[in-house]
Simulated scan of single mutants.
Amino acid sequence: MEQIVISERHQLFKWQYPEWALYLHLIRGEHRNYLIDSGIDHISLEPLLPILATLSKPLVLINTHYHWDHVLGNYAIPADRIMAHQQTATILSNSWDTRVKEASNYLSALPPKCLPTDTFTQDYEFEDDGIYLFHTPGHTADGISVYDRIEKVLNVGDNLGDDLEHIVPDLDLDVSTYIATLDQYASFETATMVSGHMGLAQPTIIEAIKEKIASTSNG
């Protein structure tokens, strides 16, 4: 696990797998701490758990969408609550075993079913910490993003591609829905973007993605 410090408030934790990387994102708020996504299982999370154990404030775990690499570690995170979109909770409740099967090549142990405890449909805000969660469909229908109003950091889950050579992610929905989500991102004043697989990105990547999509469509 590699640690990437953005600021005293924001820290990333990177796991490098053979074909892709995974980034979990810790936000240290004044009233709560927030961990965006939970990884795969307690074995892979072992380097992170001692760090989480030092946190004195309540921990809110946020699942950005239902894919296995973002939720199967839920049970291992010492969270006081698990936030997600309502669709995420429904999908996981109905298909947890499928998610586990999809992750079989990466699991060291079978993760027990651990679902979100708190859900929303459009948005949810922890006003006292300046943390805003909102629905951003594209990569998946249930996807959410997290915006820190204080330091202008935007975590977009998997709505960016895996790396700079593949900036357009796989999309479960139509391109127009994804473009609407990109336009929503562009409406925020953003200093830094964070992606579940790309890690850090500049806000200019939004226009680059639109140009990539347009060139592919015209081609």
Results as ranks from 00 to 15, higher is better:
Ser195Phe: 03
Leu171Trp: 12
Gly199Phe: 01
Val100Arg: 09
Asn105Thr: 11
Asp97His: 09
Val153Ala: 14
Asp158Met: 01
Leu200Thr: 12
Ser217Ile: 14
Ala103Phe: 08
Asp97Lys: 07
Leu110Gln: 14
Gly138Leu: 01
Phe120Asp: 10
Leu182Arg: 08
Phe126Leu: 15
Gly157Glu: 05
Ile205Gly: 03
Asn155Thr: 00
Leu107Tyr: 08
Thr140Phe: 09
Phe126Gln: 07
Thr117Glu: 01
Ile91Ser: 00
Leu115Met: 11
Ala79Thr: 08
Tyr132Pro: 00
His85Asp: 11
Asp172Thr: 07
Ser95Ile: 00
Leu160Met: 02
Trp96Gly: 01
Leu107Gln: 12
Ile150Met: 11
Leu160Trp: 08
Glu189Asn: 13
Leu171Phe: 04
Gly143Cys: 13
Thr216Tyr: 11
Ala191Lys: 15
His139Ser: 14
Ile206Pro: 06
Glu207Arg: 04
Leu115Cys: 03
Ser104Gly: 01
Asp80Met: 05
Val146Arg: 10
Asp129Glu: 09
Leu171His: 11
Gly138His: 05
Gly157Arg: 02
Lys113Asn: 06
Trp96Arg: 04
Gly161Gln: 13
Ser93Thr: 12
Ser104Glu: 15
Ser195Met: 00
Ile205Thr: 06
Gly196Phe: 03
Ile209Arg: 06
Gly157Ala: 02
Leu160Glu: 06
Pro111His: 06
Ser104Tyr: 08
Tyr106Glu: 05
